[in-house]
Design a protein around this nucleic acid. Sequence first.
DNA 1: CTGGCGGATCGAAATGTTTCGAAACCGAGG
DNA 2: CCTCGGTTTCGAAACATTTCGATCCGCCAG
Lengths: 345, 345
Amino acid sequence: MTTVEQQGKLTLAAIAQEAGVSVPTVSKVINGRDDVAAETRSRVMAVLARTGYKSPVQQRRNLTGRQAVEVVYDSLDSAYSIEVLNGILEAAGAADIEVVLSVTKRVPSRLTPEQRARRIVDEGRCGMIMVTSAFSEAQLDAFHRRGVPTVVIDPLNPPSGKAVSIGATNWAGGKDATSHLLDLGHRKIAYLGGPEGVECNQARLHGYLAALRAGNVAVDDRYILQGSFKSESGVEGMKKLLQLKDRPTAVFAANDNVALGALAEARRQNILVPEELSVVGFDGTYQSEESVPALTTVAQPLQEMGRAALRFILRQMRGELLDSRRVELATQLVVRESTAPPPGP
Amino acid sequence: MTTVEQQGKLTLAAIAQEAGVSVPTVSKVINGRDDVAAETRSRVMAVLARTGYKSPVQQRRNLTGRQAVEVVYDSLDSAYSIEVLNGILEAAGAADIEVVLSVTKRVPSRLTPEQRARRIVDEGRCGMIMVTSAFSEAQLDAFHRRGVPTVVIDPLNPPSGKAVSIGATNWAGGKDATSHLLDLGHRKIAYLGGPEGVECNQARLHGYLAALRAGNVAVDDRYILQGSFKSESGVEGMKKLLQLKDRPTAVFAANDNVALGALAEARRQNILVPEELSVVGFDGTYQSEESVPALTTVAQPLQEMGRAALRFILRQMRGELLDSRRVELATQLVVRESTAPPPGP
DNA sequence: CTGGCGGATCGAAATGTTTCGAAACCGAGG
DNA sequence: CCTCGGTTTCGAAACATTTCGATCCGCCAG
């Protein structure tokens, strides 16, 4: 009976004979044409499944892995974004997976989450990476339901169980940065925060608070400002801090952009960094290295986060179980020129 | 003689007969296989070009729904890159076209240009944008032959006739920057250049030279340095310039990164900008705005260049004729805080 | 009942693509 | 000069895909 298995060659013709149809019909079934009766289609599919036939295209797909991940950014406007993106691109290149990039802020998508998920599946994407985006439960649900592995990097809202979430040890990083300043002798340390609701910003703030508590330094609410992750926010924040009667001697900024803004404003007001004021940033982008003075900062393994995101997608594709739905990569304090002991009284 | 034109059908067989080869050979030429002799290949290509043969894949490409452009960067590591990318993304979003991004430097592609072109056609890409990349004639040839519209932005090597090339008025921009410094009274103006062989760098240099000539200022070879487009290059260049007995009073840097490097080094050596030294950059990235002092720079319409690239792809897809193979968008001198008249003697 | 219409289904034939082996060619020894 | 192994080039044949027309079937009007 099983004529197909007997002869070695596995061709459309063999399948066709087995299923009792013509070669073109088998081809149509494989290529998903709709001019095949349901009954015929299922008969052919049964034979295909039994024999394990792979069309040349499918065979090549396994070789070249012409798959793609969808990468969605909220906006693409900082060194942070690029570094993460470079990590993703590197890992994707190594795995021979294509990267389809889109940004939601500039071009608000007209699609509902469902439509979007639908489309992503249709286009044959094997996964989805969302970077610093706000996303709804509905969106994650849609991907989850359709079996599209999803990873979020530094999500704006708290991570949900539906997707794997990747971040850095923001709390520990905030604590390290603040401890560093305390160790130098600072007691009046300000926090120049990012957007209030954002998860990673809160973690950094709480790391800062924890360090102060551990160092027995009272928290001064006037020293804690919220803003955005942009450099203007650092400029604005710095202006406010410098108007205080009791100026802080050190500033821990929520990220490098804000820190650079703070640095710029200090400079404008002829305040010497680090002699009169210490500044610590967060992110460890290349900008922190190139500034004058070079910025002491809490480096996140940004590229590694991108690479990790892609690796998680691959693992989920292979059906491996994940150890955890939330991964935090270690930050590291990099001491450069922008921090020093506080000025004498 | 021209048997092909006589009969209406335009098939591989007809082409093959016309060119005096077999059908498979024609197929191989179209698909860029390498087992075809150069002489044979060109003969077949001549017939293909003359008859205007379009493979079924090419014919179908215009019809299929969701389209994508392939965007290739040499590397993605500067504000310049992001701004151009944002322009592309914006235009792509508006036209409902996907962006497939890849960088060549980090992950050297294992594919030959032909394979790459092949894949791009297979995946249904409707076009290709190369940004600040070095590319070979072979690559452009491969895309050209397969009818994939190709646009290069700020190519490293001189543009070829095979692709549309987009850039800025680098020469005019270099001239404007230098004239601005001359107008302020500077006579000792240095050029802190980028990589020597790169087209746009040369154009800026020649704009600089032209302005000096027009201002009757002798060119001093010690004031002209070459390097890279990175900020370290600005640091290094600045060190050299400041060691000269006869220091320049102004520096025109090949791009903002270099200018920021120069600014940083000046700062380290306690040289006041702009009081003692004027600095002009090129690009007009957001970094130039945020630096202290804010950088006078020649702004390129970076986002517009990205948008224009995508528009060109769309036009070529629609089969419209292009006015020109080379487009230069206007630059604009943005005067900020880093330039001032030279110090008195 | 008959004929005509239309959509669904399928395969013959046309067309394009890939594999594989034959022929031609090449260069280094003998 | 020939020989021998390797490479390049090409097309026959095998294979896959697409087009297009044939066939079948149900439906409806006459």
